[in-house]
Structures are given as C-alpha cells and as structure tokens.
Design a protein around this nucleic acid. Structure first.
Lengths: 116, 116
DNA sequence: AAGGAATATACGTGTAAAGGAATATTTAAA
DNA sequence: TTTAAATATTCCTTTACACGTATATTCCTT
C-alpha cells in the first residue's frame, strides 16, 4: 500500500479534533479500537470511521491480532511534518524581524517623504 | 490581542489547502492581499476571507501601509507545532519498533499457544 | 456449528464552511 | 472634493463531513 504523504493530506487528517486526539493517544503505543473508544468517549462506529480516515491518509497502520485490531502511528507523516515545520524555523530567529523593520521604515517614509 | 494557540486551532486554520498555500507563500516574507491573490489565482474576496481565518487563529498578523495590508507569519503557532511534533520524535527512533516486535511475538503465541 | 465479542460499513440528517457575485469601506491620488 | 485602487464584508448556494442508529462482517469461544 502506497501513501501520498503530503502536508495537505496530513493536515486534512489531523484537523478533526477527535482524530488529533487519537493520534496523541497513539503516541504512547498501539491501541485497539475498543481502547480508543473508551478513552475518547465516542461511539465505536465514529472511532472506526476516524481510524479509516487516518489510515487512508497514511497516518496509522493496522495490525490485526485475533479479534482486535491494533492501530499504531506511522512515522513517515510525522517526519514529513517535521521537515515542513523546519523550513519555517528561520522565522522565529533573526531574518524576519529585519524585514519588519524595513516595513516600519517604509511606512515612516511614506508619511513623511521629505524626511531622512 | 490574545490568541489561543492550541494545536487544534492551528490545524483547523491550516487544513484548508489555499490557506496552507498562503502560509507557505508567507514563508519568504510579508505579502499584500493583492500579491497573494495573484499568486493563488483566486478571487480577492476569498483570499481576504482565508486571511481572516488565519488571522483569527493567530497564524498571521497584519501591518497596514498606505492602501495595502501586509500579512506576515506569526512565530508562536509555528513554535507550537514544532513542540508538538517533537513530542513524537521518539516514534521514528527505536522504542516503537520494539513494541511492534512484542506484538508480533504475541500474535505467534496466540496462534500456537504450545510453542514457546 | 452456534453464539458472542470486536470492528467495519451503510444510510439518513444536520451543520459548518468554501466559493461566487455584489457591495461596503478605507485610503490615496487628482 | 470627487475618483480610483486595495481590501473587507455580506448574502446566497452548494458541498463535505461528522454524528447517530442500525446492520454487516470477522474471528474467537464453546
């Protein structure tokens, strides 16, 4: 099974609050549908449906054991998210604030074109 | 203006593909509504509406200069995303695969309870 | 083989939200 | 002070999707 792990699909899967919650639960290890259902306080069908979406988007994978199905996180989308967010890391460092200064100066100039 | 920068609100804002695109455009610096409109190929009202959502969820901030409004990224939500994804970093290292092995072994045991 | 867990699917309903088009608002420019 | 550019807002329509309930499926247990 091949997944398209773009930021778009990842975000689409995680945007639903219950699905985000599921992913956070799975951070501590695989869980069965029943266990997730208990922890979330939802109906079982909704949980299965959310897990389906997470599965289709490559966020989780299943491991059937007897009657149960253990869902566990897949690492690829998490790594993809990490790469994506890394590409913004410069923003909370220096470069960006200088652009801010630039705009401030531009604003002063436009209000007082004579000055400077 | 105070924002609630939870993962929930961030994901909600970013889940819409055009908004994701806008954020990626702003990675290279502030842009006006008109510039974003051109680059996205959308109608201006939709862009304004998406920017409103991004703004309300604390993803961007505005800086009016003359007629234009420069939108720029805010660093807080990006840092929050970074923190969140960091809490999963263990997953793409060792620990998790051992749990996987454990389940595999469990499965073999259940199918052949006699065998060791 | 029958009954019962655990899980998945189907169907109907309600709601949130995205897009289009028109219009309002703000600020600059003439 | 009127006009034009840039942006925001409103209203309407449509679509996507989350939920609930019921039912199907799968696999174990006896």
């Amino acid at each position: 099974m091949m997944y398209i792990i773009s930021m778009k699909t990842i975000l689409n899967a995680l945007a639903e609050p219950n699905r985000l919650h599921i992913v956070e639960l799975l951070r501590d290890g695989p869980l069965t549908v029943g266990e997730i259902t208990d922890k979330l306080g939802l109906n079982q069908p909704q949980v299965s449906k959310h897990l389906r979406v997470l599965s289709e988007n490559g966020l989780v994978e299943v491991q059937p054991i007897a009657n149960r199905r253990y869902y566990k996180l897949r690492s690829e989308p998490l790594q993809e998210m990490d790469r994506w967010i890394s590409s913004f890391r410069q923003i909370w460092e220096d470069r960006y604030d200088r652009l801010d200064d630039y705009l401030q100066k531009l604003q002063r100039k436009e209000k007082n074109p004579d000055r400077e």
